[in-house]
Simulated scan of single mutants.
Amino acid sequence: MANSLKGHVDTSSKGADAFVGIYYQLFDTQRPVLNRVYRDTSAILWNGNAFSGIGPFSEFYNKLSSSEHTVNAYDCHPLPTSTAPGTPGSMILNVSGTVKYSNEASARHFSQSFILSPDPTNGSFYVWSDCFRFV
């Protein structure tokens, strides 16, 4: 049991490291590509605005001015799963940092929580749920 949990924690940590590195780079430099990490069934809450699926959210975030995210900290933990160790399961990922939009005078603090689920078609993760909030 302990080895199984450690395997899931290790797999989640590696997945979170990769996801954080990719997500904010895409958001800041290649927003149209960001669609690939969401699905039509993704639930998204962006600073109090709810979106169901990537289509409406994509329209929203493509209207935002250019941005520059700085991630200060993130942490993840696996959700209960019946998959074998080394096999990715879903995870919760919490990120905090700052974001500077080009139309704003200064950076703003943010907190973002994701539920990431494994994508069996390519071995990566996709965003099942995303909750972003300025703090």
Results as ranks from 00 to 15, higher is better:
80 P>Q: 11
65 S>K: 13
103 N>H: 07
11 T>Q: 12
114 F>D: 03
45 L>S: 08
47 N>K: 00
135 V>W: 07
102 S>I: 04
116 L>D: 01
39 R>Q: 09
66 S>V: 10
95 V>E: 02
59 E>S: 13
121 T>D: 13
39 R>M: 12
82 S>T: 13
61 Y>W: 11
18 A>G: 05
37 V>Y: 10
129 S>V: 00
64 L>C: 11
22 I>P: 04
88 P>R: 07
127 V>F: 01
29 T>R: 11
49 N>Y: 09
88 P>S: 09
118 P>N: 06
49 N>G: 05
4 S>V: 15
70 T>N: 13
17 D>G: 05
38 Y>I: 01
28 D>Y: 09
4 S>R: 12
5 L>W: 07
61 Y>P: 05
123 G>W: 03
32 P>C: 06
61 Y>S: 01
96 S>G: 12
45 L>M: 01
27 F>S: 12
106 S>D: 13
42 S>V: 00
53 G>K: 02
31 R>W: 08
112 Q>R: 13
39 R>Y: 01
90 S>D: 05
107 A>F: 03
19 F>A: 03
50 A>V: 07
74 Y>C: 04
47 N>H: 03
99 V>I: 10
112 Q>M: 08
124 S>F: 10
71 V>L: 11
97 G>I: 10
53 G>S: 03
101 Y>R: 02
5 L>T: 10
75 D>E: 13
66 S>K: 15
93 L>G: 03
117 S>G: 09
24 Y>T: 06
32 P>L: 10
91 M>F: 05
23 Y>W: 09
17 D>C: 12
19 F>W: 08
67 S>N: 09
86 G>K: 11
71 V>K: 07
10 D>K: 12
115 I>K: 00
122 N>T: 07
48 G>I: 00
109 H>M: 06
76 C>F: 08
122 N>K: 00
13 S>N: 15
94 N>P: 00
115 I>E: 03
30 Q>C: 11
17 D>E: 14
63 K>M: 09
117 S>N: 06
9 V>E: 14
77 H>C: 14
19 F>S: 05
12 S>D: 01
43 A>C: 07
90 S>F: 05
8 H>Q: 14
85 P>S: 04
129 S>N: 02
20 V>Y: 03
125 F>P: 02
51 F>Y: 11
12 S>I: 10
22 I>H: 14
31 R>M: 08
39 R>I: 06
104 E>H: 12
133 R>W: 01
43 A>G: 07
20 V>C: 07
89 G>I: 08
50 A>R: 14
15 G>R: 00
84 A>Y: 06
121 T>P: 04
100 K>L: 15
135 V>Q: 05
83 T>E: 13
76 C>M: 07
78 P>I: 02
109 H>N: 15
91 M>N: 02
46 W>Q: 04
51 F>I: 01
45 L>H: 03
4 S>Y: 12
117 S>W: 00
72 N>R: 11
88 P>Y: 07
54 I>Q: 00
119 D>G: 09
20 V>S: 08
53 G>H: 04
95 V>M: 06
61 Y>I: 10
45 L>G: 05
12 S>R: 03
75 D>T: 13
110 F>E: 01
70 T>R: 15
122 N>H: 04
127 V>S: 02
1 M>G: 15
60 F>L: 08
39 R>K: 14
52 S>T: 04
26 L>I: 10
21 G>F: 04
72 N>D: 15
52 S>M: 07
